[in-house]
Write a protein that binds this DNA or RNA. Structure first.
Length: 291
DNA sequence: CGTTACACCTGAGGGC
DNA sequence: TGCCCTCAGGTGTAAC
């Protein structure tokens, strides 16, 4: 579900709920591969720690704690962070309707898909991590420790440059889109924004990566940054189930030009948008606009 | 080394 | 209503 823009919006909204606060309680569900650090250890390591910062690299969120240890989170396909009160308002108002009474808010409990709940000493709102498919990840890292998942990441996609893309594509015979999705090349681009950036750059997703010219690399890098920044501005893409941590929908889905528009008319030329499969991912493009 | 196929998990929606 | 199929914003690993 979430790509760089959705993760960045999550960071901006959750940061004020965590940073500067000390964790008093940690509640978890049973062990699963969602927990790279086992739940009981997580509870032990986090309790009593103050959160000093919350940053993002690609699709990862990284909290630095006051003992220099770190907590990293990945939202996977269906992960979402939110606070107890904001979410309770949304759930209750959408499932039952009507005005919220204090009783209804108190009655809210995270559902079975809420795998991590952090409570704070100042009794501010709990921060909750819900993830239906459990493709998300949470891991605690001791101070100074590294993690291969983080170490392998390429530069954040908001900083991508033409020369970097040009260099990264020289030895690759695979489809250009596959390279954009490779988090070791650039971190943060996923299926939606790969398709959207390629449309804006007028390049076919199936183009053999190594045939990209310097000029095209520059243009594509510009469009990647532009589409990500625009999506952040508009609150991200709420296509099937992504909502912002405050419960509101993003609006970038309304500015999509190709993603999930198979069979619809291209806004530029009217040609019908095609859907193909590349690297086992649904891929959308305009056969006329993208060469 | 580069590339692809598949696995992980749950739920929604379409066809019958 | 139920069953079966496909699809979904991601990524690690095995196998070619």
């Amino acid at each position: 579900m979430p790509e760089l823009p959705e993760v960045e919006i999550t960071r901006r909204q959750i940061s004020p709920k965590m940073v500067g606060r000390t964790i008093r309680s940690v509640r978890t569900t049973k062990p699963s591969y969602f927990f790279l650090t086992p739940p009981r250890e997580l509870e032990r390591r986090l309790t009593g720690r103050r959160v000093d910062s919350l940053s993002r690299h690609g699709k990862y969120l990284i909290a630095v704690l006051d003992d220099t240890s770190r907590l990293f989170l990945h939202l996977g396909m269906t992960g979402q962070l939110f606070t107890a009160s904001a979410r309770s308002v949304r759930l209750l108002s959408t499932t039952r309707g009507g005005a919220l009474t204090p009783e209804k808010q108190d009655a809210f409990a995270p559902d079975i898909h809420t795998h991590l709940a952090l409570g704070f000493e100042d009794e501010s709102e709990d921060v909750l991590f819900r993830d239906v498919r459990k493709f998300g990840k949470v891991r605690w890292l001791p101070g100074g420790a590294s993690d291969p998942r983080l170490d392998k990441l390429g530069p954040d996609a908001l900083t991508v440059t033409g020369p970097l893309l040009f260099a990264a594509t020289r030895t690759r015979k695979t489809a250009l889109k596959t390279v954009l999705l490779d988090q070791e090349v650039i971190a943060g681009v996923g299926n939606i924004y790969a398709d959207e950036a390629l449309f804006r750059a007028k390049i076919r997703p199936s183009r053999i990566a190594r045939t990209l010219t310097r000029k095209e690399s520059n243009l594509l890098a510009d469009e990647i940054r532009a589409v990500l920044l625009r999506s952040i501005e508009t609150g991200g893409s709420s296509i099937s189930d992504y909502v912002q941590p405050d419960g509101s929908d993003g609006a970038y889905q309304n500015e999509r030009r190709v993603y999930a528009r198979k069979g619809e008319a291209c806004y530029v030329c009217g040609t019908l948008i095609k859907r193909i499969v590349l690297a086992a991912r649904s891929t959308h493009y305009c056969p006329k606009c993208q060469k």
